[in-house]
Amino acid sequence: MGTGDEEYDYLFKVVLIGDSGVGKSNLLARFTRNEFNLESKSTIGVEFATRSIKVNKKMIKAQIWDTAGQERYRAITSAYYRGAVGALLVYDIAKQLTYQNVERWLSELRDHADQNIVIMLVGNKSDLRHLRAVPSDEARAFAEVNNLSFIETSALDSTNVETAFENILTEIHRKVSARQMDSMDGDEIDKVCMKPIRIDATTANTNDSAAFQIKQFCCNASA
């Protein structure tokens, strides 16, 4: 599972959001490069990485945008929500405040992201067992109420990092496939799936350029 130029069936844009210092950049580094850095510098603006994995026999290329956590960057980072089909909303299981702020991040997504975006709540730093401040059950219940999937990860010891990304990509794939089926007899498709088509024509435009692309659209729909 390299990150090279291999062929892929789907290209999904996913954003990583959440408070500063919860470990977004390290989750990304672990997933895309199998690296972890205890003193990774704060992210300025946005950073980009990618990796392709196989889901349901389809090659999926995940284009992941890591965002700065500080509120001041919201205006810049929210531009990157456009066209995203998935979001990992990360908090730190050892810092209650980062969990409390999950609500605010959700409303950010409501304001700026596509309404069909798949959101996964991620409690990171699960290795810090002795410092846990957010009970798993509480977070899981919150996720259920808000229709989010939920997982706890540790970028440090790799626990569940792979699974988290696999799960969200699978879910996105499922949603997209279902929508493609729907579209056979409706125009529902315009809302989400047709977005990528615009890309080719608008490469000169800015923020949504790397949005959400489905290759071989017709073939997939009938597959």
């Binding site: 510098k41 603006g45 946005v46 490469t203 800015t206 923020n207 350029s209 790397a210």
Partner: peptide, 22 residues
């Protein structure tokens, strides 16, 4: 850059924000 969908903000924001220190 345009052809490949690169937005200047994506890379030069940090250059400007941190005056190239990064």
């Amino acid at each position: 850059l345009m052809k490949h969908g690169i937005d200047y903000l994506q890379f030069s924001f940090r250059w400007m924000n941190n005056l190239l220190t990064r």
